[in-house]
Computed example of a mutant assay.
Amino acid sequence: MAEDRTPANALEAHRRDDRVLDTGALRALAHPLRVRMYDILSQYGPQTASSLAERLGESSGSTSYHLRALAKHDLIREVADRGTARERWWERPEGGISFASPEAMDTPAGRSAKQLVMVEFLRNRNEQLLDYATRGIEQEDEVWRDGSIISSATTRLTAEQAQELSAKIMALIDEAVENHRHQSGEGVRPVTIRADLFPLPPIGDPS
């Protein structure tokens, strides 16, 4: 039987591959500093407690404590065959995560943890975007400016058309991540890729 490749099914398959965070993992991540540490590991790769402390203006004792809390719920893991007993390296496992846990959404604590994590994650990414827009554009070489996009658009879609467009966007992003996740060498830098697509409230709806 041929595999169903419709956009809706392709997007659903992508989401099935994500790790759905349970209540325990969400609550472990629901701390502003832990979200920032997790995001740094996601964007820049393996770090130590000391390197994270230097980036974040914290003590290494503080970052070490929070790293252990994240590791307890398998949100991060120690890098095998790297580091010493005094200086351990940590990484975020590959793959996406999802906050759409029915178990977590059934409790006030789970809903609160999800909201905090999402707000802090978006706050961090928005700060990066604003920093690039206000300072980074002028500081970057022309070749990097030409390869960057800050754009927004509005159109009118049905739910099915939105699913189709979401699937196409995610396919492009997934392909880039899969092909270049481990790339290194001269000229290679971490690049954040962001896609926002959601329905606007009806006119007159204040929410």
Score class of each variant (00 low, 15 high):
Ala2Tyr: 10
Pro7Tyr: 02
Leu11Met: 11
Glu12Thr: 11
Arg16Pro: 05
Arg19Tyr: 12
Gly24Asn: 15
Ala25Cys: 09
Ala25Gln: 04
Leu26Gly: 07
Leu26Arg: 06
Ala30Thr: 09
Leu41Ile: 03
Thr48Trp: 04
Thr48Asp: 01
Ala49Met: 03
Ser51Trp: 07
Leu52Trp: 00
Arg55Ile: 05
Ser59Asn: 04
Ser60Phe: 07
Ser60Arg: 15
Ser60Ala: 08
Ser62Gly: 03
Ser62Trp: 08
Thr63Pro: 14
Ser64Thr: 08
Tyr65Glu: 11
Leu67Gly: 01
Leu67Phe: 01
Arg68His: 06
Leu70Val: 07
Lys72Asp: 12
His73Arg: 15
Asp74Cys: 04
Asp74Ser: 12
Ala80Ile: 00
Asp81Ser: 11
Arg82Tyr: 03
Gly83Asp: 00
Gly83Glu: 00
Trp90Glu: 02
Glu91Trp: 01
Gly96His: 11
Gly96Thr: 09
Gly96Trp: 14
Phe99Cys: 14
Ala100Val: 06
Ala100Leu: 10
Pro102Gln: 01
Asp106Phe: 04
Arg111Gly: 07
Ser112Trp: 00
Ala113Arg: 06
Lys114Ser: 15
Met118Lys: 09
Glu120Asn: 10
Arg123Met: 06
Asn124Tyr: 08
Arg125Met: 09
Leu130Glu: 13
Tyr132His: 06
Tyr132Asp: 09
Ile137Pro: 05
Gln139Arg: 13
Trp144Tyr: 14
Ile149Leu: 14
Ala159Pro: 01
Glu160Lys: 04
Leu165Ile: 03
Ile173Pro: 02
Glu175Asn: 04
Ala176Phe: 13
Asn179Val: 01
Arg181Ser: 02
Ser184Tyr: 08
Glu186Arg: 13
Pro190Met: 05
Thr192Lys: 12
Arg194Lys: 02
Ala195Leu: 05
Phe198Gly: 00
Pro199Gln: 05
Pro201Arg: 08
